[in-house]
């Protein structure tokens, strides 16, 4: 599990990474309730933070490709699957840890306003996996880290806006409302709204299943390109 353990070492050595995971989620915890969303602002927008965090994490694979270490890894007795699996597992654990701290922080700051934090954590966990697989699929299209990141930033914001993370989906034209169903961000926003409306876990199966399906699809797309 060398690749797995070195993901932690490499990620937490980056000052920008440490700043990102400590400042942004912390700041988000303290955002107050918005006008239309039943949850505090940070919990409404946390999906966007997850998309950017996943991009930072998955950027490690892109770095391996651009600094040619992937060639050396390809010459080592480690399969393509093992390499991808160990990377993805490490990213998922880091994401899960940050999700956990974020939700715990939310409970401390907002108390009962944060409806059903346990299920909220489950939703963020599924979306975290989706965000990682989306980043992997996205980065498989690029060899250059800067180009991949700059386009991804715009794309993530667009997905968040069209997916109903920033304003009610009903505020958009009907065509866009229908298009939103094809966006993974929609299913997180929808699940959170349902949860805030008092839904039980069984009533969230549809959005969770959709997030899972998106994850599988993106993982498939991301792993199709042979890295070595």
């Amino acid at each position: 599990m060398t690749v797995f353990s070195f993901v932690f070492k490499r990620f937490f050595k980056g000052v920008a990474n440490i700043a990102f995971i400590s400042i942004i989620p912390l700041a988000a915890i303290f955002l107050p309730l918005g006008e239309w969303h039943p949850l505090p602002g940070g919990f409404q927008y946390y999906g966007i933070i997850q998309l950017f965090l996943a991009a930072r994490l998955s950027g490690i694979i892109l770095e391996d490709r651009s600094n040619k270490t992937l060639l050396r890894i390809g010459a080592a007795p480690i399969s393509h699957f093992q390499y991808l699996f160990q990377n993805t597992l490490a990213y998922s654990l880091i994401m899960l840890m940050i999700n956990l701290l974020f939700v715990l922080g939310g409970v401390l700051v907002h108390g009962e306003v944060l409806i059903n934090p346990g299920i909220l954590l489950v939703l963020y966990t599924f979306f975290g996996m989706l965000a990682i697989s989306f980043s992997l699929a996205w980065f498989s299209l690029f060899d250059n880290k800067e180009a991949a990141f700059s386009v991804l930033t715009g794309l993530a914001m667009l997905m968040a806006m069209l997916g109903g993370m920033m304003w009610p989906i009903q505020a958009m034209p009907l065509l866009l409302q229908r298009t939103a169903l094809l966006l993974p961000t929609y299913w997180l926003a929808e699940a959170i709204l349902r949860l805030a409306g008092g839904a039980t876990i069984s009533q969230l199966i549809m959005p969770i299943a959709m997030m899972l399906l998106f994850s599988i699809g993106f993982i498939f797309l991301g792993s199709r390109k042979r890295l070595f």
Binding site: K9, R10, K13, N67, K68, T69, L71, R72, A75
Partner: peptide
């Protein structure tokens, strides 16, 4: 086998 690559392929952050 061991491979010494043509490009310097090491981790700059390690």
């Amino acid at each position: 086998l061991g491979l010494v690559t043509q490009d310097i392929s090491i981790y700059e952050d390690l």
